[in-house]
């Protein structure tokens, strides 16, 4: 486990989006899967294997942690995942990295259409 946020950079797009969504609101696996699909405009479609390989990786890296079980309205209790302190630092670091890149691109007049 690397405790320095920069060691986790750059974040892969699906990892990045998943971290952002979990930072927005802790949630359980299936819901995360659906939100990833919705927020990426259908570009990030995960299935059980890929979803939990990613979640496992995030947990192992210490960016995400399972929360106390939260009872959903009906059915079995679902395990929710939330972003750790390290996870938030990594998100910030990634945002800074991308902001720097954006700055550079703007200086070269290559970011016009990004607005």
């Amino acid at each position: 486990m690397h405790n320095i946020a920069e060691d986790h950079l750059p974040l892969k797009p699906r990892r990045h989006l998943a971290l952002l969504l979990l930072a927005e609101e802790p949630t359980y696996g299936i819901a995360l899967m659906e939100r990833l699909e919705a927020r990426s405009g259908g570009r990030i479609r995960l299935n059980a294997g890929s979803l939990y390989r990613m979640i496992g990786g995030l947990v192992d890296d210490g960016l995400v942690e399972p929360l106390e079980e939260v009872a959903a309205g009906v059915g079995a209790p679902r395990k929710h995942y939330g972003v750790t302190h390290l996870g938030r630092s990594v998100l910030r670091a990634e945002a800074r990295r991308q902001a720097d890149l954006l700055e550079l691109a703007r200086g070269l007049d290559l970011a016009g259409e990004v607005e």
Binding site: G29, I30, A48
Partner: peptide
């Protein structure tokens, strides 16, 4: 959880 996601 993987089984649940799979069924979903």
């Amino acid at each position: 959880e993987m089984e649940a996601a799979l069924r979903h």
